[in-house]
Each structure stands twice: as C-alpha cells, then as structure tokens.
C-alpha cells in the first residue's frame, strides 16, 4: 500500500511541474523578461503569490519558465544517455568477452572518471557556458550509466533458457537482442530513466548556479538561487521558492521512480524491502 502511495504522490508532483512548464509557454502571471523596478522585492502575497525579485520580476512566473529549462535539459540529457548507452550495453552483452565488449566497457570506465561537473567545466572552458553545454555534459555522463545497467541486466538475460531456445530456432544475436532482451529490460530502463531525470534536474540546477548552465535572460532555478544569495538575509523568499521547486521536482521523480520499480517488480512488491543495493548503486552517480 505504501508503495502505491509513493507512485501516486510522485506522479502528482511530476505532473504539477510538467503542467507548470507547459502552461508557461502560453501564459504566465507576469512577464518574466521585462523589469518592473517599482515593484522590486515584494514579499509573497497579493498580486505576486511568491513575491518579486530585485528587478521586480514575478517569482512564480520565473519558476514556471524555469521548470521549462530544468525539464528540457534533464530530459534531453536522459535521452542522449539512453539512445547511446542502451545500444552500447546491448552490443557489449551480445558480444560478451570479445574485444568490442572490452572496448565499450573501458570507454565507460573512462567517462566515469569524469564527474558531470568536470565535463561541464571542460566544455565551458572551450565553448563558453550555455544550456546546450549543460545538456551535453549531463548527457555524456548518462551514457555509461545506461550502458552498464543495460549490459549487466542483458548478460543475466542471455543466460536464460528462452534465449537458448531462440538461438536453437536460428535467430541472430541482433534479432534476439531486439526481440527478447530489450523488451525485458524496458521496465528497468524506465525506472532508471526517471532517476537519471531527477539527477539531471539537480545537476542542471547546480551548473546554472555556478554559471555553467542556462544564461540570462533565460530563467533557471539554479541561477535564481545564485542571484538571491546575497539577499537571502532580508529577502529569503527569493531563495526559498526556487529551492522548494527543485526539492519537490526531484522528490517527485524519485518517489515516482521508486514506485515504478516496486510496481514493475513483483518480487519486491510482495516481499523483502524497497530497493536493492544494485539499484541504489546505479542511482547514485550524483554529480
């Protein structure tokens, strides 16, 4: 029962933020680009639910538009990781023990030696800061996460008798990977995707915070926090609302991911406990 509750709360939070991001395309309470110095640093309440910043911009509106940046960056980064990582993992598993497998795995080790922040720093040092660079940095970091997970899970599937049956029927390794292996990995990949998504939101916030992510005037949660830092003591609402937005988005995605995992995995649903160490190990590639 508790598991289903996780799923529902997580889904609700996710829907809330995705809706906020989508609505911001057509409508926000106030314009987020134009400045309104007369109304600067308003406390929450009245017209401005979450108050205004030092340029008089509406915080709620900025959070809505910021959700767009967060979601876009994290989603594309997860997409890059999946599109490149999953096939690499499948190839490595299908050619277990060969040079190809070895190359793919060593390549993964190499990327793993660079925390996402370092990749972002390197890219920024060369190309200058931008949201696209943040996507690339987080995306590159996601590749080995998915490649390793896919390979490990696929290897155990290759041991199954039904794969042998398919081989006895004369099917090629490529076809078996597509027909038998990948469909049985989907649940796992969706769960991991959700978790990488939440890590992506955190990473994007971190990169924007230090100025390596989205550049002004594009609103982003991380930069809102960075700009509010010096005013925290007298205008805490500037930092509290974007911070809570990050916390609730990440929390929602994590709860949703955990809930999905329990929902998909009957073994975990019926007995034992909530998560396996491997699952957390895979989750915790935090930058």
């Amino acid at each position: 029962m508790r598991r289903r509750r996780n799923l529902v709360i997580g889904a609700l939070l996710c829907v809330l933020f995705i809706a906020a991001a989508l609505v911001s395309f057509v409508w926000t309470p106030f314009d987020v680009i134009s400045l309104d110095i007369a109304n600067k640093l308003k406390t929450p309440g009245g017209e401005h639910w979450f108050g205004t910043d030092h340029f008089g911009r509406d915080i709620l509106s900025m959070i809505m538009v910021g959700a767009r940046t967060s979601i876009a960056v994290a989603l594309v980064a997860v997409g890059i990781g999946m599109v490149l990582g999953v096939p690499l993992g499948l190839f490595a598993a299908a050619s277990r023990g060969t040079l190809l497998d070895e190359l793919i795995m060593r390549g993964n080790d190499l990327i793993f030696a660079f925390p996402a922040l370092l990749i972002a720093i390197l890219i920024t040092a060369v190309l200058g800061p931008s949201a696209v660079n943040a996507i690339i940095a987080i995306g590159i970091f996601n590749i080995p996460v998915f490649a390793r997970l896919t390979r490990a899970a696929a290897l155990s599937l290759w041991e199954r008798d039904y794969i042998l049956s398919a081989r006895v029927a004369g099917k090629s390794k490529l076809r078996i990977s597509a027909e038998h292996i990948l469909p049985n990995l989907l649940n796992l990949l969706i769960v991991q995707g959700t978790i990488q998504f939440s890590l992506g939101v955190l990473a994007e916030a971190g990169l924007s915070y230090v100025g390596l992510g989205a550049q002004p005037p594009t609103p982003s949660w991380g930069r809102m926090l960075a700009e509010s830092q010096t005013m925290f003591s007298f205008a805490p609402h500037l930092a509290i609302f974007p911070g809570l937005a990050i916390v609730f988005t990440v929390l929602g995605l994590n709860l949703f991911g955990d809930g999905l995992r329990d929902y998909f995995d009957p073994r975990l649903r019926h007995n034992r406990h909530d998560e396996t160490p491997e699952a957390i190990v895979n989750d915790e590639r935090v930058s």
Partner: peptide, 24 residues
Amino acid sequence: FQDPYGSFNPRHTVGRLVAEPLHA
C-alpha cells in the same frame, strides 16, 4: 530445458512462444 520458469520469455504470449521455432 529443465527449468520450467526460465525457459520462456515472460512478455510473449504462449502462442508466440510456441511459434518461435517456425523461424527456422
């Protein structure tokens, strides 16, 4: 095979499972 649990892809219907050798 021996294991009546690991011998089948859990995501395919029995009809599809049984028809797999027709590939040959």
